[in-house]
Each structure stands twice: as structure tokens, then as C-alpha cells.
Write a protein that binds this DNA or RNA. Structure first.
Lengths: 216, 216
DNA sequence: ATCTAATTGATAATTCTTTATCGATATAAA
DNA sequence: TTTATATCGATAAAGAATTATCAATTAGAT
């Protein structure tokens, strides 16, 4: 019988890239064995949580030894689909869009932004981080021709839904949304919202708590 | 007796900015009364959850009516400390740093980035989005003189810890960390980590699940 | 060969978060 | 005035996630 698909909890999945980063550092340093205790110590996490998180990738460790680093790295990469690069289109070549276009680290996360699109004629035709900025009208055609199924939205909230609609129409099935609005898409399309404001809110509340602590 | 300090759950706090955004839209549109049902419908959330989230701000609604929009907005802003603007320093004037410097929306979140710092002499002296890029050496002095207590880290992981140390030495007590590494700070300093990679990981796993669904 | 110690992985308990239920209240209609 | 209804807010139930516990396993020491 085939192995049961382990989904794993969302928080676990979120932590996997962190593990991957430290594991790659270990590998670089020549370490080829690591225990959950060790990873946990580095990241200040609970060793049990580390084991549980890693388990969702299907990795199997050895008692008294730990995990073989290259195997573990591969397991995480495979689980995340980061072993074969995913090509994506980005729409919205503003500040944030440019930042993402210029971020070299995405290649470690299996992401390759191949082109940017923008409605502003002044931006169209330019290059940002060696990627062409193309007119919005070309998105649908190119996405289909190049079989691009991942889109990144970095436009203001006023146009986010329209861009999402265009992406869906172009056959894109996974959207990374950096606009602060909730976008509506068919069920067959997945959306991941990245909300900076939420993080800022948490920081502010924690900071206020430190400054005037209820109890200590 | 004084009111008990309601902390509220982290997920609730994260959702508050979203409420704030739609409430401001309602206000703009002239709506001055809103019910949890209405908010929930717009955001596709559970009405009970909306009420519970709003409750942490101390807001009190009226049965059969709902909430008074201006009051609710003020309650959220006050709870988040977004009613009086918080001034911050940003370190790392690269792609992402520039994006944050140029993001006009922070003023709606009570955040005002007043200056940027960078180790690169080529960047020092320039202006990004009307903010000066200053040499790192000036950070400590200026932070103390201007009573800046919030820092934003947008440097590569290799220098993140060093910058965090500098910030702490300069009296900064709240750090918004966009580098992918965990930074070590004294207990009296709060850190909010923004990990893009985690979000990308979630997107990838969800996308893989859609493409080859275990069951449907 | 046996014993010891370290580590995994499974199970259980706890804590946190979300969702459901229901009485209380206020508005508006009859 | 009474009744019907929409909504809040409190309490309870259910569901997730984290943390604790422990048997099984294995490398290395004795």
C-alpha cells in the first residue's frame, strides 16, 4: 500500500525553511549528522517540535545518532517542491516588486521570477534586476506559452483583484499576494497572503507590553 | 478596580489591521454603523471570531445594532498604539530596505521611518524616498538623541546579529527583523521576525496539494 | 556479549484557537 | 404596549498545535 499523504500543520510547514537554512549551513561546514536536539538548540525551539516538524517530510532518523544532513535537506526540499525550480510572473514593478525581483535568495527556495508586468508605460520596457518589465496585456499569452502557473502580486490594493482575475484567466493556479486585500479566486487556485501589517501589529502590541508590563 | 489587561491571542492581533482597513473604507463611504456579520462577510471570516477579535480592544457594541465605526477604528488604533506615530530607524538600504522606505502606507499604521543606515559608503549620503541614508556609526548617537526605540533590520543574514547588537546598544527596544535569521537580544527587547520563506513554503505545499489532491 | 547512554518516534496531556450555542438587550414593527 | 428580530457577549464544545512522557533502537563502552 502506498504511504499516506502527510499534510502537516501550517505552523510546521512555515518552520521548514528555517530548518533548511541551518541545515545548509551545517552541510557547508562539513557536518553530515545532526540531532533534533542540536537543531533545537540553535533555533531555540523544542526538540520534540523539531522532530515532529521534520517528520512531515517523511524523513527517518536513527536513534542515538540523529539525521543525515544531506538526506534531511533533500527531504525538506522535496516536500516543499523546492528541488525543481518554479517559474513565476510578478505583477507590480513598484518598490516591493523591485525588491522581490532583486532578491537573489529565491533561488534557494526553488523560485525563479522570470518576468515582471506593470500597467505603467513608463516602467514597461525597462529592466529590473535583469528581468524585463512587460505590459500587462502580454501576461495571459506569455503565461500560457511558458506554462507559468505561479503569480506574485505586488500592486496597490485598488488593482489587486483585477490582477488576480487576469492571472486566473491566464491559467495561474498559485498566487502569492503581497497586497493587503483579500482576493477572490476560484477554489482551484491557491492564495498565500503576506500581510506585513499583521506583523507590525504584533510587534507594536508586544512592545507596548514590555514598556508597561501588567505583571512581571 | 481597574480593568483587566486583555492581551488577546496572537492570531487575533494579526487580524486587527485587516479590520482597520475595511473599517476605514466604510468610514470613507459614509457608513457609521457596522455589525460583526457585515465585517465577517466582507472578509470571509466567522462572525464570532470577528466579535472576539474586536473584543480585545475593549470595544463595546450595541445589540441589534452593531458597532459605531469611528469608535471602533479608534479602539483598534489605540490598542495597536497606531494613534500616535512611532518613529523608527531602518538599517540596510538594499532592495527590501528601499521598498519599506518608499511604502507610503506605513503612515496608516502609525509607523514613520525617519532615517536609513547602511555600511556601504556608496549608499551613505544618498536619499531614498526622501529619507537620508546615514553611516552606521551615527546610529547609536542619533537614536539616543532622537529617542528612537524601534528598529527595522533589512540586512543580509550575515550581518543581522551585529546590527541587532548595535540597535540594542543604542537603546532600541523593538526590532522588526526581515532577515531570515533568529537574532539574539536581551529579554527586555522584543523582536518580530518577518519570514517570507515561510509564506512561500505554505504556498508551495498548498499548490502541490491542489495539483495532486490526495482526496477530493 | 552485555550494559549504558543518547536519540528517535509514538502516544498522551496540555494549552491555545476557532467554532458553536444561547441568554440578554435594544430596535422596530404590530 | 407587546412582540418579533437582529445583534452582542459570555460560555461551552471542538479542533489544532505545542509540550511532555516513554518504549524502542542503536552506537559505543565495558
Amino acid at each position: 500500500m502506498e504511504p499516506v499523504k502527510k499534510v502537516g500543520s501550517l505552523p510546521s510547514i512555515r518552520r521548514l525553511p528555517t530548518y533548511l537554512r541551518v541545515l545548509r549551513q551545517f552541510e557547508e561546514a562539513g557536518r553530515d549528522i545532526v540531532s533534533s536536539n542540536h537543531i533545537a538548540a540553535v533555533l531555540r525551539l523544542d526538540p520534540v517540535q523539531v522532530r515532529k516538524d521534520l517528520a512531515i517530510t517523511g524523513i527517518i532518523g536513527k536513534p542515538k545518532v540523529g539525521y543525515f544532513v544531506p538526506t534531511l535537506i533533500k527531504a525538506i526540499e522535496e516536500f516543499l517542491g523546492w528541488d525543481n525550480s518554479c517559474e513565476a510572473f510578478l505583477v507590480g514593478a513598484g518598490n516591493l516588486g523591485s525588491a522581490l525581483l532583486g532578491y537573489a535568495g529565491f533561488k534557494d527556495h526553488g523560485l525563479n521570477i522570470v518576468a515582471a508586468f506593470d500597467a505603467d508605460p513608463a516602467k514597461v520596457g525597462t529592466e529590473i534586476a535583469d528581468k524585463f518589465v512587460l505590459p500587462l496585456e502580454k501576461l495571459a499569452n506569455l503565461a500560457k506559452r511558458m506554462h507559468i502557473t505561479t503569480g506574485i502580486i505586488t500592486v496597490p490594493e485598488s488593482t489587486a483583484q483585477r490582477i488576480a482575475d487576469m492571472m486566473v484567466a491566464a491559467g495561474i493556479t498559485a498566487i502569492w499576494n503581497f497586497s493587503p486585500v483579500r482576493i477572490d479566486v476560484p477554489e482551484s487556485v491557491v492564495v498565500q497572503n503576506e500581510d506585513l501589517a499583521g506583523g507590525l501589529a504584533v510587534l507594536c502590541v508586544k512592545a507596548a507590553g514590555i514598556r508597561k508590563p501588567g505583571r512581571n
